[in-house]
Structure formats: C-alpha cells, structure tokens
Nucleic acid binder design. Sequence first.
DNA 1: CGAGTTTGACCCGCGC
DNA 2: GCGCGGGTCAAACTCG
Length: 356
Amino acid sequence: MEFTSLVDTSLDLSFRPLPVLDKVLKQEVQSNFTGLSRDNMLVKDEAGDLLEELNRVSSENKKLTEMLTVVCENYNALRNQLMEYMNNQNNGVVDDSAGSRKRKAENISNPNNNNNNKNNNLDIVCGRLSESSSSDEESCCKKPREEHIKTKVSVVSMRTEASDTSLIVKDGYQWRKYGQKVTRDNPSPRAYFRCSFAPGCPVKKKVQRSIEDQSVVVATYEGEHNHPVNPSKPEAAAGTATSTGSRLNVRTIGGTTASVPCSTTLNSSGPTITLDLTEPTTVAKGDIMKMSSSISPTGGSSQRTTEGDHYSRPEFQQFLIEQMASSLTKDPSFKAALAAAISGKILQHNNQTSRW
DNA sequence: CGAGTTTGACCCGCGC
DNA sequence: GCGCGGGTCAAACTCG
C-alpha cells in the first residue's frame, strides 16, 4: 500500500486566500489606515517602526519558510527511503529453502519423487526463485541475499510457566513444525516451524528454551509474511500468549529497543521489552501499534514487532501519521513558526495586491 | 481421512 | 579431507 495514499503529509504553504477573506482583510487594512490618517504625525513614526518590524518578521518568515521547505524535502527523502526499504522487504522476500538444495541421493536414485514436485510447486509460487536456480547466479547473489535475510530476523522471548514443556509461541500465525533438534549449546531441544497459513510463505521460526532461564522460550523469526495475520486468531495476533499465561519480550537482532508502556529489562543479550501478558485481558491491537511506533529516544533506530509487517499495515501507518501530526501540533514553537509563516504570507499577499 | 507432530536420516557449511 | 553441528526432509505416527 502506498504510504502517501493515506494522507498527504506535505505542507502546502503556497498562499491562496479565499476571496471573502481577502476582501475582509483589505477592508480591515483600509479602515485601519483611514483611521490612522487622522493623526498623521503620530502614525508616521509608528508606521516606520511597524514597517521595520514587518520587514524583520518577513525576513524571518522567509528563513522559516526556507527551513520548513528543507525539512519537508528531508522528510520526503526519508519517506521515499522508507518506502523503498519497505518495498524491498515486501518484494524481496526470498525463500531460502525453496530454491535450495535437493537431496543428492534422491535426485540420483529417484528423480520423480515428491521432493521434486514440492520444489516445482514452490518455484511456481515464488517465481523469483526459479530464476535464481542457476548456480552461477546463486553464488553471485549469495552474499547480498544473506545480508538481506539477516535484516529480517527478529527474536521474541516469552516467559512461560515452568511446567509448560511445549515450545509453542502463539503469535497469530499458523505454524507447522518440521523438525526438532538438540543443539550443542543448549540441552533443551530446538523446534523448527514453518508458516503454513499461506502457501509459499517464506517465514520460518526456531523456538528454544533459554539456556539462562528455562522458563523463557526464545523464538527466532526469519523472513517476512506475505499474508495478513490469521484472522481467526485475533487474540493471538495481538501478541497474546494464550496457552499458559506468559511474558513477551520483543527485540530485533540489532539489539534495538523500544519504549513501551511496560517494564524494560536488561539481560546479557541486550535490552528487551517485557510485556506482562499474564493478565487475562488481551492486548488491544492499538496498543501493539503504539508499542511498535513508540521509538525510544535513547535506545536506537527502530523497533519491529513480532511479525514486522505491522509497519506496512494501514492502521500502523495511519497511527504513525497521527502521531507525527499530533507531535507537530503540540509543539508551540512549530505552531508559532507556522502562524508567523502564514501571517507573513498574508501580509506579503496584501502588499502585492495593494501595489497592483 | 486429513492435518499436524515426531523422529531418525540426510544434507551442507564451516572449522580444523 | 574429515568430523561436527545446525538445518531440513519425509515416513511413520497421532489426533480430532
């Protein structure tokens, strides 16, 4: 969805006063000046001062307008960059498993097996992948792709009941477990899940209990969903862990953090956000949006939610715009500058029309 | 009966 | 080249 399609965030400072307003202003100015003409001597000094003041304010307004233009340009440039980044994320989703390896033995011994059929299906779904099947292309694109995937990795840790041995993290999506492995560095097994809600969805997640705290389940998400959250599980979509009552910590691989209306903690792997979800009331979607958009002034650059695609959702974008608008309108200096710019434009316009 | 889970085997990258 | 370990596959099994 086009970001700009929601709200035109650009500031239109070009002055096009309504004819009625223009008339009223002219009358006002005229009456003021006719009133002043009665006492010319006294007015001359004041007029000189006022003109001086007017010139000063006008030049100030000019500067402010220029600054505002620069700010708008910068904002637009940033917005374009953001759009580009988001488009890249949406379009550049690569299923690293699909175009991938086929079992050598199976290919030799049984070339018509199900595995081949599966890969063909995936090639159809993710047309991009079939293009990259040649080994040359694969090798030359390997590094950037890996880097790209790295940017889409997010980690979610969730505190569960100690008695709960399942490795289930309910997050609104439908997952299919395809493997489990005991890793060397952690005695608890790691479970591998693939998103099964939409065919061809490239997202995978690994779930493993924390080595430091066995009651904490750490889920690592890779990739980005190419479909919305499962609508049949709205409670889970809001980030609620339903099974046992739990706490949810969200952080990105980059170690960034977010200021959210809940407690923040520091652990060995960096700052994390703890959402106390043990309460029976579910977290509203709006709250998640708030959390997603509340960027810590001290923490870092960005914060992604569990799925990361909240950014591309219209509700989030609307919320972001509202936040930006409200922060601007709450800023008295911005309001003063805007008022001065507008009044300057009005005066400038009056000067021009009075000259003609 | 279909969808999901379990689990042993296999693949592959990486370090030595 | 070899072994290790993480990741994946797929047949067997379970469950609703």
